[in-house]
Every structure is written in structure tokens, then in C-alpha cells.
């Protein structure tokens, strides 16, 4: 039986929203740590950049609150007034999961539902500890979801979820690098100084890449190497290279199942071919921001092509 287009759309968005919730949780966690290590102005800069990374800076500005830990952490986790908080992402994920209940295993559904229920309890991040507890719980549930997906039958349901995750993750990582790279250091701090180092460590923590970095690079922490890791090393699951490869792989499996190829397949394969030729030093010389902007735009175009190819309506 061929999958319903609507089901495919819901699974794809389920994958995207779970990934987004997980990413925001990691970002909040890493920023709390960074904030704790830094002097006040640097700490606030970190929270502002967290808003930039998640596309929520404008929505936050509209609240009129100061960008300190308490308010930004609250805004990014439990605020239901905008679509960029963890609770809203989980709500959307759960709505999509509910709409395709039959395509999921009980285990996968239960993981989503449990993550969603976390926010139904009275848990309210007031201090850093409470925030860390909450994001830790979210991460545990999204990990549970990922595990459940891996244990599901290898069928198109899983492929659409993973395709959604891959597209979302590519956007998140690109955005993270773009914002952090341009983050202004507080006055008086030297490039390569402690605060700068901490910023890059935060990035690595956000994408769970601290260990990978140590494995792959013998040098100490260097921004160009962090960029190299996050852009071009497919060994790291959250690198752009890995996301690009995963998109091609998932589309390939779906194409085999349906017997059809389309615009999304071609676009994803062309992107992978270019990615394989990409060298980090050239990207930096040519302008990292421009390169990332083009990547983000192309990722969006791929998202559109997927919707068209599988008739998401």
C-alpha cells in the first residue's frame, strides 16, 4: 500500500519539529553553561544570539523583556505565545503525530506524548537549574523518540521522518554557525581569548560535537576547524555534509519504494555533489556568511521540492 500524501507530510513535519525542539533544548542548555562562565555582558550577548539562531529575535523584542537568562530561557522553552519555543514545537510535533498515529509504533508515539506532557506539569524554569532539568528531560524524550524511530520497520514512515529531521538539522546547524561566527565579542575581549573559546565550545556542545572534535582534530580549539567539522565532515551527524547525505539517502529509499523520481531527488543529489567538493578554507575566504545564506536558501528550496514531489498539497 502506498502511503497517503497527507500522512507523508505529517511524518516529514513530525521529523522537523522534533528535531527543532531538540535543537532548541541543546541551544538553551549550552547557553546556560556559557552564561554561567561569562561576565554579565557576555552572558546577555549569548542569550541574544540564541534568539537569533532560532529566528525568534523579533518575537522576543515584541515582548519588551530584557534578554537575560530568566526571560530568554522562559521564552524559548515554555512560552506559547510564539511558534519558536520548545513547547510549541512539541505541540506541533504531537499534532502531526496524532494525525498519523497509525504510521507510528506505540513506542514512538508515547515518546512524543511524554515529551508533550512534560509541559503540562507545573514545571517552570525559574533558575538555571530548573531550566537545565527541563531541557534535560526534553532531550531524554527526543532521544527516546529517535531510538523508537530506529526500531521501527524500515519503511517510508521512517524515511519521511528522517528526511524531515535531516532538512531541519541542516537549517539549524547552518544558522548556528552563521550567527555565532558573527557574534561580536564583548569590548576588550581578544579573538581567541577565553570568551571566544567559550563561544566555540558552546557551538560544539549544542551539536554534541565536543568529543568528535577531539577525535578528528589534534590541534586545540580553532574556529576554522570547528567550521570545517560542522560543514564538511559527514562523520558528525549534525554536520551539513551529513545532513546533505542523509537527505539523498532518504529520498533514494523513497524513490525505490514509489518507483518515481522527481525534482527533489535531483536537487538533493546536485547539492551533495557540490558538498563533496567544498573546502573550508575556500568557503572562509569567499565569505562564510554568503555561503551559509546560499545554503539556507537552497535547503528551503529543497523543502518546497519535497512538498511538491510527494503531493503534500
Amino acid at each position: 500500500m502506498l502511503m497517503l500524501s497527507r500522512t507523508a507530510a505529517s511524518l516529514y513535519w513530525l521529523g522537523r519539529y522534533v528535531e527543532r525542539a531538540d535543537f532548541i533544548a541543546r541551544l538553551v542548555e549550552a547557553t546556560v553553561r556559557l552564561d554561567a562562565l561569562s561576565a554579565t555582558p557576555a552572558g546577555e550577548a549569548a542569550w541574544e544570539s540564541a534568539l537569533n539562531v532560532t529566528y525568534t529575535d523579533e518575537a522576543f523584542a515584541a515582548t519588551g523583556a530584557r534578554a537575560d537568562q530568566a526571560s530568554v530561557a522562559r521564552f524559548l522553552t515554555i512560552d506559547t505565545g510564539h511558534s519558536g519555543s520548545i513547547v510549541q514545537c512539541l505541540d506541533m510535533a504531537r499534532n502531526n503525530a496524532r494525525a498519523v498515529r497509525t504510521a507510528l509504533t506505540r513506542e514512538a508515539w508515547t515518546a512524543i506524548n511524554r515529551a508533550w506532557l512534560l509541559f503540562n506539569s507545573r514545571m517552570r524554569p525559574g533558575n538555571a537549574m530548573a531550566t537545565l532539568n527541563l531541557v534535560e528531560a526534553v532531550k531524554a524524550e527526543t532521544r527516546g523518540f529517535e531510538g523508537a524511530i530506529l526500531r521501527m520497520m524500515r519503511n517510508e514512515a521512517v524515511w519521511f521522518i528522517r528526511l524531515g529531521s535531516a532538512v531541519e538539522r541542516a537549517d539549524n546547524t547552518a544558522r548556528l554557525v552563521d550567527v555565532k561566527y558573527h557574534l561580536l565579542l564583548p569590548e576588550g575581549e581578544a579573538v581567541g581569548g577565553i570568551v571566544d573559546r567559550d563561544q566555540w565550545t558552546t557551538i560544539l556542545q549544542t551539536v554534541s560535537a565536543v568529543t568528535a572534535y577531539r577525535w578528528l582534530y589534534s590541534e586545540g580549539l580553532e574556529p576554522r576547524l570547528v567550521i570545517d567539522l560542522l560543514l564538511t565532515r559527514p562523520e558528525l551527524p549534525r554536520s551539513l555534509a551529513a545532513c546533505v547525505e542523509e537527505s539523498v539517502e532518504m529520498l533514494g529509499l523513497l524513490g525505490k519504494r514509489t518507483g518515481l523520481q522527481g525534482g527533489a531527488d535531483r536537487m538533493a543529489r546536485a547539492r551533495m555533489a557540490r558538498m563533496h567538493k567544498t573546502r573550508t578554507p575556500e568557503v572562509i575566504v569567499g565569505g562564510l556568511h554568503e555561503w551559509l545564506s546560499a545554503f539556507i536558501a537552497e535547503n528551503l528550496a529543497l523543502d518546497r521540492a519535497i512538498a511538491q514531489q510527494f503531493r503534500f498539497i
Partner: peptide
């Protein structure tokens, strides 16, 4: 019904 590979 509308599926990912056409109508059934």
C-alpha cells in the same frame, strides 16, 4: 485516495 505516488 491521494498517495505519494499518485491515486489509488
Amino acid at each position: 485516495m491521494q498517495t505519494i505516488a499518485g491515486r489509488v
